[in-house]
Computed example of a mutant assay.
Amino acid sequence: MKAIITATLVFLISGAIVPVVQAQTDSSASDPQLAHSVRVSFAHAGVSTSHVFVFARGGKVTLLGWVPEHDQVALAERTAASVPGVTSVDSWLARGL
C-alpha cells in the first residue's frame, strides 16, 4: 500500500513540475513570491510543510504532498486561500502515513 501511495505521489509531482518549469520561464517574478508567501503563512499557522510543495501561477496556488494529520489539510487550504494575491487553491494534499 505504501509503495502505491509513493508511486502515485511521484507521478503527480513529476506531472506538476514540468508545467511549473515552463511557467517560470514566461511568468512574472510575483509567482515565486506568492508561493513563498504561502509557505511563510503555513509556518505562522502551524502547518507541517516538510512534505508539501507549493506552486503558484497567476494567483492560482497548487498544494501537492502530504501532512501528518487530517486537520492539517483543511488548515493548509484555508491558510493558502487567505494569502493576499491568491485567487484560487487547488489542493492535492493527503494525510501521510
Score class of each variant (00 low, 15 high):
Ala7Asp: 08
Ser28Asn: 14
His44Trp: 13
Gly58His: 10
Ser14Met: 15
Leu9Glu: 15
Val83Glu: 05
Ala3Val: 09
Val47Asn: 01
Ala29Thr: 09
Phe42Gly: 01
Ala35Thr: 07
Ala7Lys: 05
Val40Asp: 08
Val83Ile: 01
Leu97Cys: 04
Leu75Phe: 01
Val86Tyr: 02
Phe53Gly: 05
Glu77Pro: 02
Ile5Asp: 15
Thr8Glu: 12
Asp71Leu: 11
Asp90Gln: 13
Lys60Glu: 13
Trp66His: 12
Thr49Cys: 05
Ala74Glu: 10
Ser88Asn: 13
Asp26Gly: 07
Val54Trp: 09
Leu63Arg: 02
Val20Phe: 12
Leu64Met: 11
Ser27Ala: 14
Gln22Cys: 03
Ala56Asp: 08
Asp31Arg: 09
Gly58Trp: 03
Ser27Pro: 09
Thr79Ile: 01
Ser50Phe: 09
Gly65Thr: 04
Pro68Glu: 03
Ala45Gly: 02
Gly15Thr: 06
His70Arg: 13
Val52Trp: 11
Arg78Cys: 06
Ser82Asp: 11
Phe53Lys: 09
Thr87Ser: 15
Asp26Ile: 08
Val20Lys: 11
Val18His: 00
Ala3His: 08
Ser41Val: 02
Glu69Pro: 00
Ala7His: 05
Asp71Gln: 13
Val38Gly: 08
Gln24Asp: 14
Trp92Lys: 11
Gly46Glu: 13
Phe11Met: 07
Asp71Ser: 14
Val10Ile: 15
Ala74Phe: 07
Ile4Phe: 12
Gly85Leu: 07
Val83Thr: 03
Gly65Asp: 06
Ser88Ile: 06
Lys60Asp: 10
Phe53Thr: 07
Phe55Glu: 06
Val83Asn: 02
Met1Gln: 01
Thr79Ala: 01
Ile13Arg: 07
Ser48Tyr: 03
Ser28His: 12
Arg95Trp: 06
Thr49Leu: 08
His51Asp: 04
Val10Arg: 10
His51Pro: 00
Ala94Lys: 13
Ser91Arg: 01
Gly46Phe: 13
Arg57Asp: 06
Gln33Thr: 12
Val52Ala: 10
Ser48His: 05
Val21Gly: 05
Val73Phe: 03
Pro84Met: 08
Ala80Glu: 00
Val54Cys: 12
Val21Asn: 03
Val86Trp: 02
Gln33Asp: 12
Thr8Asn: 11
Glu69Tyr: 13
Thr79Met: 01
Val52Tyr: 11
Glu69Ala: 15
Thr62Pro: 05
Ala7Glu: 08
Val54Tyr: 10
Trp66Ala: 14
